[in-house]
Design a binder for these strands. Sequence first.
DNA 1: CTGAAAGCGCTTACAG
DNA 2: CTGAAAGCGCTTACAG
Lengths: 352, 352
Amino acid sequence: MTQRAASKSKPKSPPAVRGSRATGRVTIIDVAAEAGVSPMTVSRALKTPALVQEQSRQRILEAIDKLGYVPNQAAATLASARSQVVAVLVPSLTNAVFIETLSGIRDYLASVGYQFLIGETGYDRHKEEELIATYLAHAPAGFLLSSSQQHDILQSRPASRAIPAVRMFDLGRSQQDYSVGFSQTRAGHAVARHLAERGYRRPAFLAAQLDPRMMKRREGFRKGLQEAGLAADIEVLLPQPTTVDMGAQLLRRVLQDHPDCDSVFCCNDDLALGALFECQRQGISVPRQMAIAGFNDLSWAACATPSITTVVTPRYDIGYQSAEMLVRQLKGEEIAKGRLDLGFELAVREST
Amino acid sequence: MTQRAASKSKPKSPPAVRGSRATGRVTIIDVAAEAGVSPMTVSRALKTPALVQEQSRQRILEAIDKLGYVPNQAAATLASARSQVVAVLVPSLTNAVFIETLSGIRDYLASVGYQFLIGETGYDRHKEEELIATYLAHAPAGFLLSSSQQHDILQSRPASRAIPAVRMFDLGRSQQDYSVGFSQTRAGHAVARHLAERGYRRPAFLAAQLDPRMMKRREGFRKGLQEAGLAADIEVLLPQPTTVDMGAQLLRRVLQDHPDCDSVFCCNDDLALGALFECQRQGISVPRQMAIAGFNDLSWAACATPSITTVVTPRYDIGYQSAEMLVRQLKGEEIAKGRLDLGFELAVREST
DNA sequence: CTGAAAGCGCTTACAG
DNA sequence: CTGAAAGCGCTTACAG
């Protein structure tokens, strides 16, 4: 059954007003006629109400209500060469981390009347380039990205068509290289120092999904261990996507290759959860025989048995603030801090 | 620093071709001139290549490449009164279930050149209405929804402006009430029967986020228990959002109020995980002293210690197939099965 | 504070 | 297979 036929069978809607145009849609022209003003004034009443006389505005709002007028975004975008849509590119949609970031983005954008398109890059640079090309056709007002390469590409467009972008999670190199995030390196460093202070002598680094951020955490972790006089030689790195089960696998690998390992830094909480389950399965006491630290503070970290030490990351705020920074650019506002470090926190719990 | 100033400082782009129009953008007119055809032929070469002579098409593609032409979607939408954007409304973005559904939607839509906008309703009906109103301004080609009320609203629009919609997760009442999902009731029923068959005598139902789907699972569960001759009197229902920690809370409540309870059906895997952690904390052996069943088969269910019995739901497929059903409606194709039951599976594991 | 004119970049509907 | 004309619904830039 087609769309048309389906709706014919339920003709119970309020009899919609037919617009004057051939399409039958109610347009700004119909509203103008109803309110006794020009279309231009209707447009102003919607975009810049302060420039319209109170009385006119009232009549316009009534007309809009009466006719059921809905603005046509496509026409607005075409006429103004500027859309109210922001393109957001995240590495993965199946990772809770990025989802919370999207919530932050959505909350800010909704508050200023913007929409957003979401692209998933799968941690793949080429995919990201493709997506940007696709999105450019939608004339997005700006981009929120999670890698640095594409940032450069967008900025290098001719000035007349430059599209602002903000990079999330990582910090940029300068105030002009707009970014909102925290230092992945320092976060890794903090975990190393914590394990060393607790007295663990043989910490391992476990990671999957080897994107640049993981590598920075690793770098900081190694440096932290070395500063504490510990060896940074135990590592298991796998390129596959992160899963809980992979945490269990990584732990088995470590136990097999390095029986003297006494603690693990899992580069995210999914892996940490899998590692914990594996310890439980093998009857290894956590943290007595094996300490476990994670990353991100996902919902289960605080209430696992034992609760999991992890790095609390400002995911929601990264989304919210990067959206705000982007919109401020769009409005041509001055941005004092173009490199916004939101920091992180180490939540020390029972597992270490 | 403003957008313009920022890009001026990095003038390293390939010198983009300037279009003939006042905006400087490269349009279909520029491509036409370059290829020596009319704009209309360029439009055809892009939308219906079969209608354009091979030779012309070649020249047009070369011109597009040379000029770096990017189609303007806003203009296309305005002219055709039809966008390539689908509006998707899900209850929550922080729930892995819906995220996987979005992946399915994205994969199908990407394959046919559509984009999508995502709205989060927060399980709130009014919020959903608001979102629909907002999205209507973007002239979406269609809607993918997760509740039934709004479905009716859209279908009741005047035929000339009807916007097709498909409902996800739940099944509709008829083949005309487009929907893709599975029977929540039967899934709940299957869990009850399984627990009864395993010999549990005092099963409880634990739920949070009391949306209509939860209520259907509960209904099926109660019915299943009754059919097995068991009482369906132990329940803890909380309206708050689901978290892992809430699973622990719910379990504590049940143990306190019903010390004879020997098994719990948690209406999702987050709750099941929390319940498992709480048992571990209290030294309650799972499944010997307390059996736990979950719902959805999220990543940790299979590898927890003990592994968690759960209902495997076709989340990705629901997204993929509902997107397909929607697009087929958009194309005016015949849809034989407008009510697509994708079923579910009970994964029996160590926890029951 | 308000309006008439022109144009945004594409597609529809018609004619060849 | 191709093209000239008109129009989609709004906003910009100007004039009052």
